[in-house]
Amino acid sequence: MSKNKQGKKHIHILDGMSLYKRDKSPFYWGYLNVGGEIYKKSLKTRDKREAEKFLFEWKSKLLLDKSLNKLNGNLEMDVLKNPVVNNTRRKALMITSSLMGAVTVAGFAVPFLSAWNPSERAKALGASVKFDLSKLEPGAMAVVEWRRTPIFVVHQTPKALENLPKLNNRVTDPVLSEGVARSTNEKFTVLKGVCTHLSCAPKYHPEIEPKAWDEQWLGGFFCPCHGSKFDLAGRVYKGVPAPTNLEVPPHTFEGDTLIIGELT
């Protein structure tokens, strides 16, 4: 392919592509054979590299034109030159694909968010605990651990039970319906030892004597963190940061045994 019929020197580039020089012309000329059709023209440059570049560009342009013509011939609709856009259809596709995308994201979020829930082991560790009440002296308090929360079990003295109604006016929520000691048992009060303000552990002060935080202290719990006061039944005093009474955890009595937590 290095020579054509006129005998001029051709520089071979690729099959059907070559450059050649003509007399009296300072430029490179291009020769193309595209699918049997021959094209020739001056590439208007003296630089060989540039000529090669132009030759390739010319070829791709010819190929594109050809394929376009073919399309036009085969299809009635001139899609590429005058695209007909169906906006309703596009919108419908957009909405459905966005919805599908949102559902996919939400679906994938489920396992990742659920992984943060308490695991089976954590749930098992949160099961109920037993406590023997027979060894708890009147006036004493035991701390039992349940769900890692300190549970206060108070054996109320008769004096303490007598004093509780006197405090009805000084507490925010007297909860008279829950009974004097807020317990299903007359003698024992079971409370979560967690301050309802910000989760500190209130201290047990059963003594009936003037305290730094209260001149007329009749015994109860004092939270050292932010100064919340509760009586021996865990009822919160007025004017302290804690909003509600100490919580009573779910519990039941079976003779001398106290069961803290839900029965399963």
Binding site: W116, N117, P118, S119, A122, G126, R147, R148, T149
Partner: peptide, 12 residues
Amino acid sequence: VWIQGDFVLSGI
């Protein structure tokens, strides 16, 4: 509970 992954603040 969801943030803690437990009923109390724990190793989880």
